[in-house]
Write a protein that binds this DNA or RNA. Structure first.
Lengths: 233, 233
DNA sequence: CAGTGGTCTAGACCACAAG
DNA sequence: TTGTGGTCTAGACCACTGG
């Protein structure tokens, strides 16, 4: 007899995965088309489509109209990173969250920052330096520019009551942006603010958030020594 | 007259997104149920479902049976990272790829590595240290343990012809794993291998890959100074 | 218990791209 | 040109969970 019927998309996906892992279908091979699989499994084509579509999104299959479906040759491992609001991240580790504003000014950004902000010379931005603490120890320190032309309301917000990140997330729906991770060496200033040693290796995250073609905010967050960013494969 | 009909799942998604961004539906609010939206948009419920399901996967909506659909209160920004095979990454930057084996031995891993490998004392593993080059300059240096109990074939593979990563991806279908990013300071040894200065800040990636409950391989990759990991939000 | 999302089906038409 | 995936529909039943 045949095994249990394969008539849910998860079951189809599991079976297809099994065949890929068992090398019944090898990297680069074409697999049967949806209609054929639907007939074999005894389910609707939409069910097969749902299963294969997700495997394609996960990078295990390559699908093209007319060309059919193939097992990906060079599967790039995809990691999904959650970048939570810092308060949530710190509190989820069981620590008490607190943050303080180190400095706040309205000014025209210097040349280096202007490029990232797509700002014209002399255009005023809000410049915030803030420190996020977990259990009274520095956790991350951020240097942020907020485009007042895009977010005029920000000029009057009390960012000691709510962090800039959190306020922006809640009040300025963003449409996209870029994020980059790099490793830096703690400068004397970094060390003083984060209470670490000069020369420590620190993780830095640079983010740019856009809306309607404008840059809403650009921020560099510098994490305490030993910080790890984790994800599942 | 009404605008163009909303009868593709992308159009539904766009319209829902617009309402979230325009704060017509605010964070924490419940939105109409699928059937109501389907009627409003003049499309099938399955179409609405497809649109909302993906928004939920992206973290913008919370959906629960009976409770309905709500706009997520603390949207964590999700970044999708592609971790390609290094050869592909380097070649995609227009550089010529080359790699060399620094050392290769079969040995029982030391205590520190044993934990990550879930290995018993005395269990033999393949220990590989390799250097990946882009245009004859060191790009990343990796220290890898391969579990020979899980992958006996690896013992005889010529890893000068194909990198361990690439061989494993093609020959040992993995089922999952963890990845962690951190910042380290270049040791004297790191500096010698990567041809950088001792004390430079370096990005390090630790990966563990599993299959059938076993650890297949654990690797630490240390990148050249200035390396950035980029992603879209 | 009953409301809501989750999924399946059978059929249809469309969009894209390989040959 | 034509095969293949992409999507929509209308209806149905199921699974979970809030009240």
């Amino acid at each position: 007899m045949r095994g249990a019927e394969i008539n849910t998309w998860q079951a189809v996906q599991t079976e297809v995965l099994r065949r890929i892992r068992a090398h019944i279908w090898r990297p680069g091979d074409a697999i049967p088309h949806e209609e054929a699989l639907a007939e074999e499994f005894g389910c609707a084509r939409a069910t097969v489509n749902r299963a294969l579509r997700q495997l394609a999104e996960d990078g295990l299959l390559d699908r093209r109209r007319k060309a059919g479906t193939r097992v990906t040759l060079n599967p790039s491992r995809k990691a999904k990173l959650d970048i939570p609001v810092l308060r949530v991240e710190i509190e989820s580790k069981g620590m008490r969250y607190f943050h303080e504003i180190v400095s706040r000014e309205v000014a025209a950004p210097p040349l280096a920052a202007r490029a990232r902000l797509q700002a014209k010379p002399g255009e005023e931005h809000l410049h915030l330096v803030a420190l996020h603490m977990g259990d009274d120890a520095p956790y991350v320190y951020e240097d942020r520019w907020i485009n007042l032309a895009a977010v005029p309301k920000a000029r009057k917000v009390d960012f000691t009551a709510i962090s800039a990140n959190e306020w922006l997330v809640r009040n300025v729906p963003f449409e996209g942006g870029e994020i980059a991770f790099s490793a830096v060496v703690a400068t004397k200033r970094d060390a003083a603010i984060l209470r670490c040693a000069q020369g420590d290796g620190l993780m830095a995250i640079d983010r740019i958030t856009r809306r309607a073609g404008q840059v809403v905010t650009a921020v560099r967050q510098t994490f305490k020594p030993g910080y790890q960013l984790q994800a599942q494969l």
